[in-house]
Design a protein around this nucleic acid. Structure first.
Length: 635
RNA sequence: GGACCCGUAGCUCAGCAUGGAAUCAGAGCGACGGCCUCCGGAGCCGUAGGCCGUGGGUUCAAAUCCCACCGGGUCCGCCA
């Protein structure tokens, strides 16, 4: 079976270059054949450097004869261009797709290994917002891509259940449990309700803390600052009151007698120590939130193989503390103590061991702090334990962690610390992405100011509904609404490079026109529609017709190049390239569709075009599966 | 103060890693003008719109590589 049609052409091209080598006595093994610019054939290689010193090459090129798929050889503007036999290539591409089916796009270069992909990993304290959504969609697409490529993939959600944030949520939950559970029983989304509880509890704590602080300060300026800060949190409470007065009142009255900030500190310590009562109270809240997370994740087509609880992996095993000892022993020269706190000069260690390139480190690294002066662990230490646990027990060839760019430094510190303990830290990759920005105000879950993925999906569904309600039966419309909404959202998140800050904009994110998820789905639907009318003919082989139109040639080249494109994306992980490719495939299909009748074509042409449409539909479907864009037959 | 990322059409973005094309640096949105007696118009075709942030450098060749600067974002916590 031929997996990669384009590679066949490249093989012929290489043989051509080899002959040119033997004729001229020059070495062309370094040159890389690439796709020719439109109008210059199929493949090209720049020979300017060679031609400059050896004009004789031009004559040698004239003596080269076509071979295999290569039909024409030209030297233009210093480029060696080749063009191919489009008929033979069309047959090769379509037959490859027909025989590979759902696997078309895979090639040996796509690679198979053992990959751990950690993503989303949101704090279980509120709904997934658009920032987590970006993480989730990137992570899930990376997972789908690697699975498609034949890798053994383990997707993991790291549950941060030890930090103070989660305690605010849990304390709030426990102090108004009946009311909250009733809301959930009546259909409220649990992560939404508990997100409010988290924000309200936090605000109550801040109002208490700032009021106390204000009373003990003499300086008027400072006093004013504290009052202003406190008033902001009073405002947050007022905002929640206007939405759900009952909940705010319930929380405020039951929290009135406790010092929330102190209580949070106590819960953090007790939780870390393994106090069973606190453990079960906190986990009760987290599990509620996970009920909400899981429904959102599944709406967007994302799933996890495992939820890894920080407390179990890093604390209960004693691993986090043990690692501190290991580092103190292994990197004694770099360990410093501030009070009782253990810190490590990772920057100096990295310099001494020349790790900057191999671990892709920034030029500056702050000192890594492993314990507080009371000996308790910090997030970094527990994260380090997680990494060690993962490397030891999952035995991955690669770990891809999708984490926001603001964690560049801690993630780099983590790699250096791993190296210090003798681990192959290069295997851990921080797949960094930039934040999602709201116009005007910054998102803040503490202030209850977020756009959740649930909100986004709901809005998308409403917009799709308006388009669909008049053109499909009610039953059918209901089925496609979510699929199209999810397709639109996943596509737009993927189409922006993760290195760029994503400016949140409803209209941009929920684009339903060309260069969008729905455009891809629409192209698939059009292909399906043709095949449906033709009765989904079983096509096993194809013969190219006597003439091929420009649109057909273009579409076939898109299809033939897919395995190569996927192999490239699987190695560079630039998902936006995939978006570009799938959009080109769809656009070229739509042009073909406008210009080339299929059903009503002459019999011979009809058969060929049906095969081409079948091949397109298969190939497009494969890419859509990788991107997580739902496949639908009507819309 | 230091480090990292971003700067391409009015707006949102590809292209940069691995420099390469003959009068033309690509999409989408928005604007303007066409195309349904013909497989689904969420489509197709066309017009207008760019000193690729600025200034140097390297090269036969720079949006792409190097340096400096300017704008925007992020990080530099005994938070996560």
């Amino acid at each position: 079976m031929i997996y990669d049609p384009e590679e066949q052409v490249e093989a012929d091209f290489k043989s051509l270059l080899a002959e040119l080598s033997s004729v001229t006595g020059m070495d062309f093994s370094e040159v890389k054949p690439g796709r020719a610019r439109e109008g210059f054939g199929f493949m090209a290689v720049p020979l300017h450097t060679y031609l400059k010193n050896n004009p004789g090459i031009a004559d040698a090129i004239k003596s080269l004869r076509p071979r295999g798929l290569i039909k024409r050889i030209d030297l233009v503007n210093g480029f060696l261009n080749i063009d191919i036999d489009n008929y033979a290539y069309a047959e090769l591409v379509i037959n490859s797709i027909l025989s590979a089916g759902g696997k078309y796009g895979w090639s040996p270069r796509c690679g198979g290994s053992r990959v751990v992909i950690e993503h989303t990993s949101a704090n279980p304290i509120h709904q997934l917002h658009t920032g987590h959504g970006r993480n989730m969609i990137i992570g899930d697409t990376l997972s789908r891509l690697h699975r498609f490529c034949g890798s053994e993939v383990s997707t993991r959600f790291y549950v941060d259940d030890c930090g103070p944030q989660v305690m605010y949520m849990a304390i709030g939950y426990q102090s108004a449990k009946e009311l909250i559970n009733e809301r959930i029983r009546k259909g409220a989304k649990p992560d939404k309700v508990l997100g409010a509880v988290y924000s309200i509890t936090y605000a109550v704590g801040e109002v208490q803390r700032l009021s106390t602080a204000e009373r003990s300060v003499e300086n008027d300026d400072e006093k004013r600052k504290l009052i202003a800060e406190r008033d902001e949190w009073v405002g947050v409470l007022a905002k929640w009151s206007s939405e759900d007065e009952e909940l705010v009142n319930a929380l405020a009255s039951s929290l009135g007698g406790v010092n929330v900030t102190d209580e949070v500190g106590r819960w953090v310590r007790e939780y870390e120590r393994g106090n069973q009562e606190i453990r079960s109270k906190v986990r009760e809240g987290i599990e509620r939130i996970f009920d909400g997370f899981k429904s959102t994740l599944s709406s967007f087509g994302a799933s996890f193989d495992a939820f890894d609880w920080e407390s179990e992996i890093a604390l209960d095993t004693g691993l986090a503390k043990a690692l501190v000892d290991r580092i103190v022993a292994a990197g004694a020269d770099y360990v410093e103590r501030l009070g009782g706190a253990v810190t490590v000069d990772v920057e100096r260690y990295a310099k001494d061991h020349d790790l900057a390139n191999s671990l892709s480190l920034p030029k500056f690294l702050p000192k890594a702090m492993l314990t507080r002066s009371d000996g308790s662990t910090l997030y970094l230490t527990r994260d380090l334990a997680y990494a060690v646990w993962c490397l030891d027990s999952c035995k991955p060839s690669r770990v891809i962690r999708v984490i926001g760019s603001e964690q560049t430094h801690p993630q780099a510190q983590l790699r250096v610390l791993l190296h210090m303990m003798g681990y192959d830290a290069g295997r851990i990759m921080h797949y960094s992405y930039e934040m999602v920005n709201m116009p005007g105000a910054k998102m803040s879950s503490r202030r209850g100011r977020i756009v959740s993925m649930d909100d986004l999906l709901e809005e998308a569904e409403e917009r799709v509904w308006k388009i669909v309600k008049d053109r499909l039966s009610k039953e059918e419309a209901g089925k496609v609404v979510k699929a199209v909404a999810v397709g639109a959202i996943r596509f737009s998140f993927l189409s922006i490079s993760p290195l760029k800050v994503l400016e949140f904009n409803w209209d941009k994110l929920l684009d339903l026109k060309q260069n969008s998820g729905p455009f891809i789905q629409y192209s698939y639907v059009r292909a399906s529609s043709i095949l449906e009318k033709a009765g989904y003919p079983a096509i096993t082989g194809v013969a190219a017709p006597k003439s091929l139109s420009e649109e057909e040639v273009k579409l076939i080249r898109d299809l033939g190049g897919l395995p190569r494109a996927l192999a490239e994306v699987s190695s560079n992980l630039r998902l936006e390239n995939l978006v570009d490719y799938v959009n080109r495939m769809a656009t070229d299909f739509n042009v073909f569709y406008e210009k080339s009748p299929v059903i009503n074509a002459e019999p011979e042409l009809r058969d060929f075009r049906l095969a081409l449409v079948t091949a397109f539909r298969t190939a497009l479907g494969n890419v859509m599966n990788i991107m997580g864009i739902p496949i639908i037959e009507h819309m």
